[in-house]
Amino acid sequence: MRYVILLTTACLIAATAWAAAPLRPYSGCGVLLAQNAPGPEASPLPFYAEPGLERLAELDLGALPRLSGDREHPVLAVYATKGSWLKLAWDDAGRAGWVEGARAWEYRSWDDYLVGRQVKVLPGLKKNLYALKGAPREASADAGSVSRDQRVRVVQVAEDWVRLERPAGWLRWRDADGRLTVSP
Rank of each mutant, 00 (worst) to 15 (best):
L180H: 08
G94D: 09
R179S: 07
V78N: 11
E100R: 10
Q118R: 14
A77D: 02
R151K: 12
P167C: 05
S84E: 08
S43F: 10
S147N: 06
S145I: 00
A104H: 00
K120M: 15
T16I: 13
V121H: 08
S84R: 13
S147G: 13
R153H: 01
Y113K: 03
L32H: 06
A19W: 15
G39F: 13
A168N: 10
P25K: 00
A49V: 05
Y130T: 03
P74A: 04
Q156F: 12
V154T: 04
E54T: 09
V157A: 02
W18H: 13
S147R: 14
I5Y: 14
P38K: 09
K82S: 09
A42S: 15
E159T: 02
K126P: 10
V31K: 03
A158C: 07
A131M: 14
K87C: 06
W18M: 10
Y79N: 08
N36I: 01
V78H: 06
C29A: 11
G101L: 06
S84I: 09
D60K: 13
L180D: 03
W170Q: 07
L12A: 11
P44H: 10
G69Q: 04
L56A: 08
L132E: 08
R2N: 12
D160S: 15
L132P: 00
A63H: 11
R108M: 02
R172Y: 07
P74V: 05
D111S: 12
L6H: 12
V155C: 00
T8P: 02
R148N: 01
A102C: 06
W85H: 03
A20I: 01
A176Y: 13
A19Y: 11
A77I: 00
P167G: 02
A14S: 14
R179V: 09
A21Y: 13
A77W: 09
L32T: 07
S183V: 00
L12P: 08
N36F: 02
M1C: 03
L53Q: 13
D142A: 08
L76A: 07
W105T: 01
L45K: 03
K120T: 14
G62Y: 04
R55E: 12
W110C: 10
L88D: 04
D92Y: 12
S183P: 00
S140I: 01
R95T: 09
D149V: 01
E100Y: 00
R103G: 02
L129F: 14
L171V: 01
L67P: 03
R148E: 15
Y107A: 03
M1V: 11
L88P: 00
G169V: 04
A63E: 15
N128E: 15
E50T: 10
L164Q: 04
V75K: 03
K127M: 08
T9M: 11
P40N: 12
A80D: 15
D149F: 13
Y107K: 06
R66L: 06
A143M: 14
P123D: 03
K133M: 15
A42L: 04
V99I: 15
